[in-house]
């Protein structure tokens, strides 16, 4: 019984770890630069999903917007009623910065392709070694 409770309490972390390891393998194992970039994005999204998941609270908590919150609020606001807003804020900025870094990385990949006419990492390294000698 304890094992089942342990699995139910922790399985969402395991899902994000598996997703993150897919991205990590793509970053260190693949040779193509675009595949490496896709791995970086998968890694990033695993971390974003993890952060959003730790914001959740069981027991009837709702989205982090105060209900009937315009003007004077007379009803009591309890912290257990609403989800934790802080991970949402951090990940909102992280998503947009992720889009920007992906754009810069794609621009760099376009520049590399214009110069070397390939995106395979080992071929690029061979060309660089050939030009150095």
């Amino acid at each position: 019984m304890e094992t089942i409770e342990f699995i139910i309490g922790k399985y969402n972390y395991w899902v994000y770890i598996i997703l993150m390891m897919i991205g990590f393998y793509a970053m260190i194992g693949k040779r193509n630069l675009v595949k490496k970039l896709m791995g970086m994005n998968i890694f990033q999204w695993a971390i974003i999903l993890y952060y959003v998941s730790i914001a959740s609270k069981k027991g009837g908590a709702t989205i982090p917007i105060i209900q009937n919150g315009h003007g004077e609020v007379t009803h009591a606001i309890e912290a257990a009623q609403y989800l934790n807003p802080l991970p949402h804020v951090l990940m909102l900025t992280a998503i947009v910065v992720g889009v920007s870094t992906t754009g810069v990385a794609l621009a760099l990949i376009i520049m590399i392709y214009r110069r070397f006419h390939t995106l395979e990492e080992d071929e690029i390294i061979d060309m660089l070694r050939a030009t150095k000698k």
């Binding site: 309490g9 922790k10 399985y11 998941s53 027991g59 257990a80």
Partner: peptide, 16 residues
């Protein structure tokens, strides 16, 4: 390492 983590959706987790 996740064995030390609070359970998912725990209202008394340190982050909350």
């Amino acid at each position: 390492a996740t064995a030390d983590f609070p359970d998912w959706g725990d209202p008394s987790s340190p982050a909350s």
